[in-house]
């Protein structure tokens, strides 16, 4: 499982995502989606660094 460390870097998280992608999708697909995973890493990091107030609940259906 991928772990998001809010103090980590985008590159570290991106590497972790690519490694996990290689495990479940194979090396070829992991390479094919490298750019998308780099974007995903940036998004995941941003979210983990800006968590809402602890009393904020999720909204699935707004």
């Amino acid at each position: 499982m991928v772990t998001v460390n809010p103090k980590g870097s985008q590159e570290e998280l991106s590497r972790e995502l690519i490694a996990r992608a290689a495990e479940i999708l194979g090396q070829e697909r992991a390479e094919a989606i490298r750019a998308t995973l780099s974007d995903a890493a940036a998004n995941l990091l941003l979210v983990s660094q800006n968590l809402p107030h602890r009393e904020e609940e999720p909204a699935f259906f707004l």
């Binding site: 992608a21 479940i24 995973l37 995903a40 995941l44 979210v47 904020e56 909204a59």
Partner: peptide, 20 residues
């Protein structure tokens, strides 16, 4: 494929952020 790799916790945090 990217969606398959995103941890559930981060999905939930994103939904909480959307509400705010």
């Amino acid at each position: 494929e990217s969606g398959m790799l995103i941890p559930g916790v981060q999905y939930m945090q994103s939904q909480r952020m959307r509400r705010h």
